[in-house]
Design a protein around this nucleic acid. Sequence first.
DNA 1: TTTAAAACATGATATTTGTCAGGTTTTGAG
DNA 2: CTCAAAACCTGACAAATATCATGTTTTAAA
Lengths: 228, 228
Amino acid sequence: MSKCEQCIIRQFNSLKALTKDELVRISACKTSKTIKKGEVLFEEGEHINGVFCIKDGVCKVSKMSENGRDQIIHLIKKGDLLGERSLINDEASNLKAVAVNDMEVCFIPKEEIVRDLEKNPNFTMDILKNMASSLKEADNVIVDMAQKTVKQRLAATLLYLNDKFPKRENGSIDVHLTREDVANIIGTATESAIRLLAEFKKKEFIKLKGKEIFVIDTTNLKQIAQGL
Amino acid sequence: MSKCEQCIIRQFNSLKALTKDELVRISACKTSKTIKKGEVLFEEGEHINGVFCIKDGVCKVSKMSENGRDQIIHLIKKGDLLGERSLINDEASNLKAVAVNDMEVCFIPKEEIVRDLEKNPNFTMDILKNMASSLKEADNVIVDMAQKTVKQRLAATLLYLNDKFPKRENGSIDVHLTREDVANIIGTATESAIRLLAEFKKKEFIKLKGKEIFVIDTTNLKQIAQGL
DNA sequence: TTTAAAACATGATATTTGTCAGGTTTTGAG
DNA sequence: CTCAAAACCTGACAAATATCATGTTTTAAA
């Protein structure tokens, strides 16, 4: 079992604010898990009671709408923390998380890390800063969902994926999303997502090879995302 | 100038976590303002450098989309704090705030209250809890914007307004929103909002008298909001 | 009180998006 | 490898929504 105090992943999230002693204690109680593509990390309504530190892979975090369709709200990747909110309130999760690529994660139980939230102001402030930044990002998503067309949102999403996620050797985005996943990110019907992907392909803004997506023409995609 | 330590409004927000001494100090440096309907509290891109404590009235908090239309993201009312995020990061505001009714607000400068964020863990935790709850709420809004029809969103918004805002003596919701404001909350064209309001009126789910809105049939509005 | 601007309203029409139906291709378990 | 399930794709059509045009009513400033 690897040791948190030697793990470089923590540099990418709030765990970097923990002291060496705190990390040693956390290391002793954390569990490491391998999660295969398609497996569930947690369900809506479940009490998570801890945080996941993502060492590798990607998962989709979604919420079922009253209309019965899943809306993907976040994609969580290597270096991210998942489930911070479970440390702050005692509510059940309003979200579901499913692995999109195979994952390596560590799980830190709430009761061990909550103390640090109370005792280490650096850690608290870092969590607070992240929340503030997530909230700002959420504002942007709300505006985009409310005001942009499906085509604009797809263009923006492709740029986001291309920007934030690793590439395979051949240059495609290394995230195993189905067309339905893409539709559930932008909030549209699967058929609409497929049609627009085909349109972007035809215009040579992107290349498609099975589930692999290659972003080619960022300039034009940016223009479309902005509604020009 | 009224004193914070004697002000009951703070019971409704995170300021309740401050000690008496802290409140006395804050009281000495805060400024009270009257803001008339239509006046701007702050603009997008402005550095707020403090928090507003809303003693009375309502304001709309919005963000301009790339498409050039304003999206209202929050309605802030009596008892709420506005601008907490300015305490946490040093970025300019991504949002604009405009009074919708006449307002009474107090402004607490950042430099005076930031100390309390550092020194008083109760205050920090309360801010953190509020952020977590806002984030959860933002998730819900994203799902609704992405998945619900305009009609569903209007029904949900009417129920929200009816639930969260004071009523006038005659029973109408005491928030002075134009049709354009309503459209900018639900993310649609003004004409569409007008048409749907007329439809709800015809079906007697609501009553309209000028800008006054009376919610009558919550049962049917709930059904519509849920897409039944 | 007057009056120009803003807000409200409605019809006609265009565009976007969803739904349904029918196929083909890909995937992964056995 | 085989083959059923899942994912993908496309067309036709329906529904939702935006846009444009035009007229009326309300509001608030002079």
